[in-house]
Design a protein around this nucleic acid. Structure first.
Lengths: 137, 137
DNA sequence: GCTATATACTTGCGATGTCAATGATCGTAG
DNA sequence: CTACGATCATTGACATCGCAAGTATATAGC
């Protein structure tokens, strides 16, 4: 299903699933910008992965770099006007595709239950660190 | 979480998550062997992905090729004795790791509910083709 | 003020996945 | 029995991702 959604997004809008995810995160963020580290965490990519992904989005003109006044180490990823447009266009067809795959398989109630269960995976583990940073053993 | 489990399996046993998945499928298969196409489908990989993955397992001596009497096109992937041993060893620590990540987040009942919901994704879609082959739109 | 440690980001490299093209074999229709 | 389309497997070209290492900046301790 991931491959299908990815192929669709790719052929219709020239975006990978991760590209779209990043655009979505930025579109909903305060000031349409996010630190690259935070972005990496929220789309489950490594720091280097974000650098390369944003390279592409910057070349396309959908994202640009922004500096941070208080900390010269950080660079913001900022959604451009063109980026907002791109996101809106891609979002329309993408939610349709997701609905076609998930909507037909689950009732409204089941979707709610599944969502709640999966959300538990994002909660901090027993050692109080975020799930994606939890050490095993 | 995928990265964690993968890293663990890699460092402890020299296996990727897909390697382990293939070993598991073969270990539970009739005669410890499977056609490469079927194997590809069950671990959600492409045909070429399976070829390259099995190359590695064959070099390690855990899997070997088997011919098919009735159809010369197909090659079986057969688990060797060493492969069975490898699987048993890896399985022990892997289920422990999975338990550590999922067990602490869900109750017995929640695990059952989550499992049932996710299983629905594998069922045939409305057009009667398997989920992973369903065409969108 | 200076050194030590931590964090943000980038880059080189290796591993792994997909796609497209190819070769071999099978089933079947004429 | 031959030709054609479908299926199984492999290979090469290409893209993506993560880790490790390197650079720059920030923060804390002396």
């Amino acid at each position: 299903m991931t491959r299908q959604l990815s192929a669709r997004l790719e052929s219709e809008h020239g975006l990978t699933l991760n590209d779209f995810d990043v655009l979505a995160q930025l579109a909903h963020a305060e000031g349409r910008q996010l630190r690259r580290v935070d972005l990496a965490r929220s789309v489950l990519l490594s720091a280097s992965g974000i650098t390369r992904l944003l390279d592409g989005l910057e070349r396309a003109g959908w994202v640009e770099k922004g500096i941070c006044q208080s900390d010269a180490r950080v660079t913001y990823a900022v959604l451009t006007v063109a980026g907002v447009e791109k996101y809106r266009a891609a979002r329309r067809s993408h939610v349709t595709d997701v609905d076609a795959l998930f909507g037909s398989r689950f009732t409204e109630e089941e979707r709610g239950a599944l969502s709640a269960l999966l959300l538990q995976l994002l909660e901090p583990g027993e050692d109080e660190t975020p799930a994606c940073a939890t050490e095993l053993g």
